[in-house]
Design a protein around this nucleic acid. Structure first.
Length: 1074
RNA sequence: GGUCGCAUAGCUCAGUUGGUUAGAGCGUUCGAUUCACAUUCGAAAGGCCCCUGGUUCGAGCCCAGGUGCGACCACCA
């Protein structure tokens, strides 16, 4: 069997990923597991659909796939759920910017519906790019459970959550000072506010002559809304005024100012007195609430002074500021005007200075006590979960950040003035103003006109129920079939129909095609009554109505039905459907005028215009969307809230909104692990905890593993704007997915940022190729790839050693102490402790150094069955251990070996303690030392590689002497030795190397360079002397001998003895050279 | 301003409850190609473990103070 010379990722990766998908094992339902198998679930943090994935996402995928593959191999019912996040504001911004750049249009130019279409167009593009990237990384995600925060299922869940929270009193509508951008006309979340350093004029003045305290501000115009002056309660200067009220005349505006005390006031800033403007400062707003102050709005949504401020009203803030300062100057009230540095809050999108404004918004009350949570609030539960270790943070320090933020959290504003996202499920009644909160979906009614009938062809009006002789023509029947085809994709729930024959026949054809059995006939869908025009041509009737609209509106001339009557019955039908079938999609087969009137309902036009609407022939154009609620005043004329929800509201539900397959929630929630970047602890992690407590009264996850940020080589955060962002696809293209993943895993510790540069990927690529070539060699060497590896009886000590060492590598203990070199550390233990980096390092060291460089070199020329067994045993299990790190290459080799099942579900190797053999380890370590020393001697003497050297070994340790003899040939090969003798007497003219009791001499005949050798030995002598002096100092210290553990003291003594022996030999050698 | 983190070889990072002469990968230098692998192998050079003090028989590790860098939160009226 022979593999290609180098591993070519491109030849394998796509095919392997397809095979994995085909196997179905990404889905835990398909894993063949015992009933009691424990679940292990991670929900992938959904990437924003604002852009393609960057290397930071690749890190998330690499870590999570590593954990998931490891757990899967360990027999857990393993689930990893993929998805994407609609990222409301961010996405809307990206599309708005694009729209402006490409078409010079704003969202208002397009209107809500058209704009949203654009957004969806954009997101479908990025979404599929993200999907492709994720698969390329090799992520073993269960695609059958893929979710999107704004798909139908999640949208329903979000609306229901909102309603439930509202019903529980946890969501409320309230007024609060919010960050308002006067240009974007939207509130901004705190994290959407940028700060700009600026020089500002800082004015110090009094409101009027009679007011005793001076205040300072950079924004005199807001002072029109002051209702208090706050001072520090400790401030002796103002103590006497606290609680007093003053009526002042501030630049012509009368104000009532109360003096209040507040600890937040800095006595040393300005005058130590703060003018409180409740409506235009978040801090002041809080003070106002505590002190029951009046709130006066001074600035409106356009950034202009509101009414009732005389000459200032209607001016923008800068104009008003100038005017007020002038006025203060002229009144002699301005005491100081200085320049200070301050931070100006600006909109992160357009840079316009932000106006804090009071505004009606929707909030989640984080302090509201909730009955089903033991009368604790969401905040309390979220704090408790971390403090009582229900949720563990890795690394633990981030718990502090979480708790700190949580404890200071105020009610969470969840409404955003944007179009994209989950529209707030609240309807305001236009009639009585009542607020209706419901998660019921819109009811949608499609009004369909019947197909061509004989009365159409013959041009004889027919609106008499007793005279239903005419049905559909052949053409009409064909039209009905065609319409039914079109309607197939609509998922119609119910069909209504007029009871006129032509409508009945149409409805029956459509119903049969759509597979709907029952048709509900409703008189209200009948054609308008034509009275005396019955049986006559349409033209007369139409002309009459058009000429006599006013009259026909309410009356019934010539016995025809009035417009009002027609409208009333059609609307009554719509009303009934809205009430009785909320959220359904309904087809109503009727007639021309019925469609016309219904269309008017939808467009909310005046009666006359409604009548002039043309009705279409096909089904898709007349649709009525009805609000899902009917107000208690019985009106269904409701208007939905224009705002959308904060994107974290829906992503906060992510751990459970994704588990919507029947039984999933019970099986997989709470999830075991959340793995994400530390930058979204507050934004996301905290929200998930609260949302999960509200919805399910349980934690969303047991552990939170936080990874760092990926930085570029210079330690700068990667981003597109900096131009240092890296597309994982580029790395995969160049080095393969395995190398890309590995480069992100090795050298990465939880919570710490990682620097990424191509060199890392390159060296990982080399390692991947090394594993490939090890396999290539083994598969070429062994006689039978399927050799039984269950029972190995190793005879050679090198076999015993590698089996021993390899089983240490498998260990679930993080580190096994051993005093010998070349001993591996436990990979399983490291993985259990989330120490992925060191797990990878251990594997790398074993693979490269222990297995390839020593064992394989050692046994290269051996030909026997036991060796084959050892090789296959190590290779198979090594592939398993590597699999979570580099799934593709390990699977590729596995398949090349002719394995029938995928490596993905192979059992994780368990340590076989019987194979741990310390004696063999020690013996092999000596051989390694001897060979290394010989190589060192050669290198120091610059012996040409082709030239063989003569070596004599003296006084070999009894224990290992036989092994040295046994390995004579291999030592000679590895050390390029011509003659190897075991002697009892030190040779003349030879360079020594000493390992404990073993002395190795390289004979120098023909290569002697006395000066060089002297120099080398002197250096070593000095080293040893210093070392010995240190040890003697230590051991001569009575305190050390007294206090240190015996083990440590003994070890030092041994070292001293050995060093002295060694020094003695060196000295002898130097003497010889003299 | 508050909180947290980081500082070890030229670079990126390990370094366990304090106990050998502090390690790895990359890079550099020297050398090797009939060998499974030049995506390879052998070897070497390279460290006031940020500074100052303390605890201890003993500190890269623990404590205090400082310096530099970074992050998060708050925000100056």
């Amino acid at each position: 069997m022979e593999l290609s010379k180098a591993y070519e990722p491109k030849e394998f990766e796509d095919k392997i990923y397809r095979d994995w998908e085909k196997s179905g094992f990404f889905n835990p339902d398909n894993l063949n597991l015992p009933k009691n198998a424990k679940p292990y679930t991670i929900i992938l943090p959904p990437p924003n659909i604002t852009s393609k994935l960057h290397i930071g996402h690749a890190l998330t995928l690499a870590i999570e796939d590593l954990i998931i593959r490891y757990k899967r191999m360990r027999g857990f019912k393993t689930l990893w759920v993929p998805g994407t996040d609609h990222a409301a504001i961010a996405t809307q911004n990206v599309v708005e910017k694009k729209l402006w750049k490409e078409e010079k249009k704003t969202r208002y130019n397009l209107g809500r519906e058209k704009f949203l279409e654009k957004v969806w167009e954009f997101l479908r593009e990025t979404q599929s790019a993200i999907l492709h990237q994720t698969k390329k990384m090799g992520a073993s995600l269960d695609w059958s459970r893929e979710a999107f925060t704004l798909d139908e299922t999640r949208t329903k869940a979000v609306a229901k959550m909102f309603v439930d929270m509202y019903d529980a009193g946890v969501i409320y509508r309230g007024e609060r000072v919010v960050n308002w951008c006067p240009r974007c006309h939207s509130t901004l979340a705190d994290d959407e506010v940028d700060y700009q350093e600026q020089k500002a004029k800082f004015y110090t003045f009094k409101y009027d002559k009679n007011f005793p305290i001076s205040i300072s501000t950079t924004r005199p115009e807001t002072k029109l809304g002051d209702t208090a002056v706050a001072v520090n309660p400790k401030d002796e200067r103002y103590k006497k005024y606290i609680g007093k009220e003053f009526l002042v005349d501030f630049v012509g505006v009368p104000l009532k100012i109360k003096i209040i005390a507040d600890w937040q006031v800095d006595m040393n800033f300005g005058t130590g007195a703060l003018g409180v403007t409740p409506a235009h400062s978040i801090v002041d707003w809080q003070m106002a609430r505590l002190n029951n102050l009046e709130i006066i709005k001074v600035i409106d949504e356009d950034g202009k002074i509101t009414e009732n401020f005389g000459e200032y009203s209607g001016k923008n803030v800068l104009e008003a500021r100038e005017l007020i300062v002038e006025k203060l100057k002229s009144q002699g009230l301005l005491e100081k005007e200085e320049e200070i540095d301050n931070n100006l809050s600006i909109c992160y999108r357009c840079g316009t200075p932000i106006e804090p404004l009071p505004s009606k918004q929707w909030f989640v009350a984080v302090d509201k006590k909730i009955k089903k949570l033991g009368n604790k609030s969401l905040k309390e539960k979220a704090i408790e979960a971390a403090e009582k270790h229900a949720i563990e943070f890795i690394p633990e320090r981030f718990k502090k950040r979480y708790l700190n933020w949580m404890k200071n959290m105020q009610d969470w504003c969840i409404s955003r003035q944007i179009w994209f996202g989950h529209r707030i499920p609240v309807w305001y009644c236009k009639q009585c103003g009542e607020v209706n909160v419901t998660d019921k979906a819109n009811t949608e009614i499609i009004i369909l006109r019947h197909g061509e009938s004989r009365s159409n062809v013959e041009d004889k009006l027919n609106s008499d129920i007793k005279n239903q002789v005419n049905g559909l023509t052949e053409k009409g029947k064909a039209q009905s079939v065609a319409v039914a085809e079109e309607l197939k994709s609509e998922k119609i729930d119910i069909i209504f129909s007029s009871d006129f024959k032509r409508a009945q026949e149409t409805a029956k054809i459509v119903a049969a095609k759509l597979g709907i059995k029952k048709i509900i006939f409703d008189k209200r869908l009948r054609e308008v009554g034509v009275g005396e025009f019955e049986g006559k041509p349409d033209a007369g009737f139409s002309t009459f109505r058009e000429n006599n609209f006013e009259k026909w509106h309410y009356d019934s001339p010539h016995g025809i039905e009035s417009f009002d009557s027609l409208k009333t019955r059609v609307f009554s039908f719509l009303d009934k459907v809205a009430k009785k079938y909320p959220g359904k999609k309904i087809l109503a087969v009727g007639h021309g005028d019925v469609a016309r009137v219904a269309k008017g309902f939808n467009t909310k036009r005046g009666d006359l215009e409604v009548y002039k609407l043309t009705y279409p022939a096909n089904a898709k154009d007349v649709r009525v969307k009805l609000a899902p609620a009917v107000c208690s005043c019985d009106s269904f004329n409701l208007k939905q809230d224009e705002d959308s929800l904060d994107t974290w509201f829906s992503s906060g539900m992510w751990t459970f909104s994704t588990l919507n397959k029947p039984g999933d929630l019970a099986k997989f929630h709470p999830t075991q692990m959340l793995e994400t970047g530390y930058d979204i602890i507050t934004l996301w992690v905290s929200r998930m905890v609260m949302m999960s407590f509200f919805a399910l009264a349980e934690i969303p996850f047991e552990k939170v593993y936080l990874h760092g940020m990926v930085l570029d080589k210079n330690g700068k955060k990667m981003s597109k704007s900096r131009g240092n962002g890296i597309d994982p696809l580029d790395m995969i293209e160049k080095y393969g997915a395995d190398a890309s993943r590995l480069s992100l895993l090795i050298g990465t510790t939880p919570g710490n940022d990682i620097r990424f540069y191509e060199g890392k990927v390159e060296s990982c690529r080399n390692l991947v190729n090394k594993l490939w070539n090890i396999s290539r060699f083994i598969l070429m060497t062994v006689e039978d790839v399927n050799i039984d590896t269950a029972k190995i009886n190793p005879v050679h000590f090198e076999d015993k050693w590698i089996l021993s060492d390899f089983n240490r590598l498998k260990s679930d203990k993080e580190k096994l102490h051993s005093e010998f070199g070349l001993v591996s550390e436990g990979v399983t233990g490291k993985l259990e402790h989330y120490d992925f980096s060191n797990a990878g390092r251990s594997l790398r060291t074993f693979t490269r150094s222990h297995f390839a460089d020593w064992y394989l070199e050692f046994v290269k020329n051996r030909k026997d069955r036991i060796k084959d067994q050892v090789l296959m045993y190590v290779l198979k299990d090594l592939l398993k251990l590597w699999h979570p790190f580099m799934p593709f290459v390990t699977e590729a080799i596995w398949q090349e070996m002719g394995m029938k099942t995928t490596l993905m579900i192979a059992k994780w190797p368990v340590q076989d303690k019987k194979l741990i053999d310390e004696k063999a380890e020690k013996e092999f370590a000596v051989i390694v030392d001897v060979v290394t020393k010989i190589r060192n001697l050669r290198a120091e003497y610059k012996v040409e590689p082709v030239k063989k050297v003569d070596i004599e070994i003296k006084n070999a340790d009894k224990l290992v002497e036989s092994k040295l003899v046994e390995s004579k040939d291999i030592i000679m090969t590895l050390g390029r030795v011509g003659n190897l003798r075991f002697v009892t007497k030190k040779p003349e003219q030879a360079a020594p190397a000493i390992i404990g009791k073993i002395e190795i001499y390289m004979l120098l005949a023909g290569l002697v360079d006395v000066e060089k050798e002297k120099e080398r030995l002197e250096k070593e002598k000095n080293n040893l002397e210093n070392y010995i002096a240190g040890l003697e100092r230590k051991l001569g210290n009575a305190e050390f001998v007294k206090n240190a553990p015996e083990k440590v003291v003994d070890a030092e003594k041994t070292r001293l003895t050995e060093a002295k022996e060694k020094l003695e030999k060196i000295l002898e050698q130097i003497k010889d050279l003299m």
